[in-house]
Design a protein around this nucleic acid. Sequence first.
RNA 1: GCGGCUAUGGUGAAAAGGUUAUCACAGGGGUUUGUGGUACCUCUGUUACGGGUUCGAUUCCCGUUAGCCGCC
Length: 368
Amino acid sequence: MFTIKNQKNNARRGVLTTPHGEMQTPFFMPIATKGAVKSLSSRDMETLGADILLSNTYHLMLKPGLEPMKQLGGLHTFMNWQKPILTDSGGYQVFSLSKMNKITEDGVTFNSHLDGARIHLTPELSMEMQAAIGSDIRMQFDHVAAGTSTKEVYEDAMERSLRWAKRCKDVPRTDEHLRFGIVQGGTYEDLRERSAKGLVEIGFDGYAIGGLSVGEPKEDCYRFTEFTTRFLPTDKPRYFMGGGMPEEIVYYVSVGVDMFDCVLPTRNARHGTLFTWNQDPFTIDFEKEAKNVFAQSFYTQKRVTNEQFQFTTEPLDAFCSCETCQNYSPAYLRHLFATQELLAYRLASIHNLTFYLTLMRALRASLE
RNA sequence: GCGGCUAUGGUGAAAAGGUUAUCACAGGGGUUUGUGGUACCUCUGUUACGGGUUCGAUUCCCGUUAGCCGCC
């Protein structure tokens, strides 16, 4: 169930209810692809204030596998996380692992990157795996085409995604959960419109904007996200899949997107790039920032591995109250990266996730 | 003291009488968008010292110095 509590222009402030609890929207989902947010525990994620995690059907299908996951009683129990989980269907791996898979109308055959074993993923199997995982929000299996594709390829992928959407919708429900469709169509307005309308006709609990941030110019990403929202029902949650940088999220919220996930805070953390505030996040004029997406004035990315931090003892981020900023100097963080201590990944991930979760809190506050 | 071997970036190695001496690591800077779990791109930096042969030597020769090995 999705309830909008307040709206400012197109931006929405709402509540999304799932079997494992409710989330205040707009929200951000940290990514636990294989059942763990890299370097962090479930308890860490609670401490950070995450309300929902994202996990991945394809990766969990490889390990531990469908039957083991059933036997283990689902992912909530397995990883001891009692709040909601959203699962990606494996559609993104059609794109990201495109060198190792073959697409047919029935589904996609992957050569496992782990042991070369063949896995034939279909819409039905993806839904079965997501049921085994026990996720609260399940994504349709879709066909993501690269951002540099021709219109013919986009159209083919979009039409197939629509047919697969219907097949996912038709899988009988055995429990309470939300099921989302995914808009494709690349960077063509007519394809995006047909995709969105087709999905709405099938009928889902929420709608995702997919197939963006996959190699196309950033302006297109902004433009087609805004364009796509025009064809989505206002009373259902909208989910921008896979993005993005802080200023992107600010923009997408302004055009009415409610849900986000992105690997950037955690991956950048592992590579030593930390997001820091230029001002108190609760004083940011997000309406202004959304109109100025390329100005990027409210935060700075700091490379804590850089030489300039060798002797820096002042806090990394004066506006951050995370465990890392409260207890450790940039100089120490740099040392941890230089010596490849595992603690580097953990402390940096704690900070970057705190940044993203705080960004969402500040955005919600601005919409009250 | 005598004999032998070696001497190439910060480190470890490679190559060659002739454009700009190669590679890895380290170091500097950057990239990352529904995560193929330590990635990718890029830059900086070297022929121990002195003399000789040669049109040209970092390469061949002699000496100096240093290190290693053996002998007395």
